[in-house]
Simulated assay, not measured.
Amino acid sequence: MGKEMMKLQPIPRVEKISKDDFVRNFVQPQKPVVIEKLIENWPAFKKWDLDYISKIAGEKTVPLYDDRPISSEFKFNEPHAEMKMADYINLLKSGPTNYRIFLYHLMKEVPELQKDFKFPDIGLRFIKQLPMLFFGGENSQVFMHYDIDYANILHCHFHGKKQCILFPPAESKHLYKVPHALISREDINFNDPDFDKFPALKNASGYITELSHGEALYMPEGYWHHMTYLSPGFSMSLRATPRTLTNFSKAVYNLVIMRNFDNYMRKLKGQKWIDYKNEQAIKRTHKKSNIIQ
């Protein structure tokens, strides 16, 4: 019911695309697109699945995150648990789990994986030190957020299917953004939102798609994204620098000031700071949307 009521249009899809067309039609206007066969020539396209990762990186200890709400107990991006990669992949295969691997630099830990892909020549200035891997079990979700560095992201999916919901930065005013943070309220279920509790969501216009093995999603800088693993799988994000000085300045602010200020306030005020921010997310959003409750 909820998903049909949200204003979500399908993300455009192309099989292949030239650099000029990609830059002109998607990068310059900052519009998302799924490129279905961009990486079919990578060795990873044929090799990468959960069994291969378990074989090549099974002994690596990996940080795990679940869907518990952010609290003063944990610092920014602090993991909730650790496990051997082989044990984690067995967990993924055994059934639904909330545990995810988030922003893990497996390329650095397992350099052999770097032979399996290349940075595509499509007009983005990729940060070649930062290919990141993300893993999730069936039905696990990544809460609605945007990235701290305002990167342009090429999100390549492997093994199974993943649902992606995106919103442009201009829609932030409708998304119950938590102040001094990069997230919306974590109690919003974007797959079935409660419009009585969060009425401003009705005004948000976004995009939706399902990624299958080998497909690449371009997410422009500052885009909000919410991911649901429809089956166990993993993705790799290739990151490119912001195109504008404005967004580069926002990235520097987030990394240098906002993150440190938030960690300081969590240490100083504890859970009261988290609760205050969640209250302000509702108050500020409803004020901008002229919603009286």
Rank of each mutant, 00 (worst) to 15 (best):
V14L: 04
V14T: 02
E15H: 00
K16V: 04
K16L: 05
I17Y: 01
I17P: 01
I17N: 00
I17V: 13
S18C: 03
S18H: 10
S18W: 07
K19I: 10
K19L: 12
D20C: 07
D20S: 15
D21R: 10
F22C: 06
F22L: 07
V23K: 03
R24Q: 10
N25F: 09
N25Q: 15
F26D: 04
F26Y: 15
F26A: 02
V27F: 13
Q28G: 11
Q28T: 14
Q28V: 14
P29C: 12
P29K: 07
P29S: 14
P29T: 09
Q30K: 11
Q30W: 02
K31Q: 13
K31M: 15
V33S: 00
V33C: 00
V33W: 01
V33E: 00
V33K: 00
V34F: 01
V34T: 03
I35H: 07
E36G: 03
E36K: 15
E36A: 06
E36V: 10
K37R: 14
K37I: 00
L38P: 12
L38V: 07
I39G: 06
E40D: 15
E40H: 15
N41W: 09
N41C: 05
N41T: 15
W42S: 06
W42K: 04
W42R: 06
P43F: 12
P43E: 08
P43G: 12
P43L: 09
P43R: 12
A44R: 02
A44N: 12
A44W: 08
A44Y: 03
A44S: 10
F45M: 04
F45S: 07
K46E: 14
K46N: 14
K47F: 09
W48P: 01
W48A: 12
D49I: 02
D49L: 06
D49C: 08
L50E: 08
L50W: 05
L50M: 08
D51G: 14
D51M: 13
Y52F: 14
Y52W: 08
I53E: 11
I53T: 04
I53M: 15
S54G: 15
K55F: 03
K55P: 00
I56F: 05
I56P: 03
I56S: 11
I56N: 05
I56V: 15
G58C: 10
G58Y: 11
G58S: 08
G58R: 11
G58I: 10
E59P: 04
E59I: 13
E59M: 12
K60W: 06
K60H: 12
K60D: 09
K60I: 10
K60V: 13
P63A: 01
P63T: 00
L64A: 07
Y65N: 01
Y65G: 01
D66N: 15
D66Q: 03
D66P: 10
D67E: 11
D67R: 11
D67N: 13
R68L: 04
R68I: 10
P69E: 11
P69N: 06
P69F: 12
P69Q: 11
I70P: 07
I70C: 04
I70K: 11
I70F: 12
S71M: 03
S71C: 08
S71K: 05
S72H: 02
S72L: 01
S72N: 01
S72I: 00
E73T: 06
E73P: 01
F74S: 03
K75P: 01
K75F: 00
K75I: 01
